[in-house]
Amino acid sequence: MRYSDAMNDTRMPPVTGLILAGGEGRRMGGQDKGLMRLRGRPLAEWVLTRIRPQVSEVLISANRNLEAYGALGHPVLRDRTGGFVGPLAGIARGLLETRHPLLLAVPCDTPFLPDDLMARLYAALVGQGADLAVPVAAGRAQHAICLMRTEVGASLADYLARGGRKVQEWQAMLKRVSVDFGEEAAFFVNINRPEQLAALEALPHSA
């Protein structure tokens, strides 16, 4: 199945979008990254705007400032594991809470995601009979952005219970497909440091 077919395929099952905003923001000086503002809007809101039209429902993974995230209008989930153990804990909670057969996880610091992200990942997932699909842009895999079947929840729970924390390591245990987005790296810019946010803020708003 080509991604253009997937976008028009009424048989595409319902999908839960999960915005991952539960980190410590260490490289942002401990600030809650999803609530940091770009052009007057929280980063998490930018991500929400990009993925909401592509999915059936949205959940937000967060471990602090829950009311602020709740104001975005979607359910907010805290990690079940104590402390900040990384994005896999948020994904695990999302897999437990979703009512749908597919979960699309995206970080809160990727404000420019493509509007055909879901369709292209889904086409590859189905076409390859994979458990999980990850975009690749300009030769770089974006492991924190992934579409997965909810059946992988058991594998993730076991990995976390054994002390595993690395996204790429867990994904390597599954049947994973990489989806080539060519040189479209700008869609997958992630904002990790204050200077990156400041540089984007300084660009013309049409950029």
Rank of each mutant, 00 (worst) to 15 (best):
M1N: 04
S4N: 10
D5K: 12
D5L: 10
D5P: 02
M7L: 10
R11W: 13
M12V: 11
M12I: 13
P13F: 15
T16I: 15
I19H: 14
G25W: 15
M28R: 15
Q31R: 14
D32W: 12
G34R: 05
G34T: 12
G34M: 06
M36S: 08
M36T: 06
R37Q: 14
R39Y: 15
R39H: 15
R41M: 11
R41Q: 10
R41F: 11
P42G: 00
E45C: 03
W46M: 04
V47D: 00
I51Y: 03
P53F: 05
Q54I: 07
V55W: 01
E57N: 04
I60Q: 00
I60F: 00
S61D: 10
N65M: 05
N65W: 07
E67K: 14
Y69N: 03
Y69W: 06
G70A: 06
L72Y: 01
G73Q: 04
G73E: 04
H74C: 06
V76L: 07
T81F: 12
T81L: 11
G82C: 05
G82M: 05
G83D: 03
V85Y: 11
G86C: 05
L88A: 07
A89D: 10
G90D: 06
G90K: 09
G90C: 08
I91R: 14
R93Y: 00
R93E: 00
G94M: 11
L96N: 09
L96T: 12
H100T: 06
P101D: 08
P101R: 06
P101I: 09
L102V: 08
L103A: 03
L104W: 01
L104H: 01
V106D: 03
V106W: 02
P107K: 07
C108L: 04
C108D: 10
D109N: 05
L117A: 00
M118D: 02
R120A: 03
L121P: 03
A123F: 05
A123P: 08
L125E: 12
V126H: 10
Q128F: 07
G129N: 08
A130S: 06
D131K: 14
L132E: 07
V134I: 05
V136F: 01
V136I: 05
A138T: 08
A141W: 02
A141T: 11
H143D: 00
H143V: 02
C146I: 15
L147I: 03
L147T: 01
M148A: 11
T150V: 14
E151L: 12
E151P: 03
E151W: 13
E151Y: 15
A154S: 10
A154Y: 12
A157P: 10
L160A: 11
A161V: 12
A161Q: 13
R162I: 13
R162T: 12
G163P: 09
G163R: 13
V167A: 06
E169W: 13
E169C: 05
W170V: 09
W170I: 12
M173D: 11
L174Q: 08
R176S: 13
V177P: 03
F181V: 04
F181P: 01
G182K: 14
E183D: 09
A186S: 07
F188M: 01
N190L: 06
N190Q: 07
N190E: 10
N192Y: 04
R193L: 01
R193K: 02
A198C: 04
E201N: 12
A202T: 05
A202G: 09
A202F: 09
S206M: 06
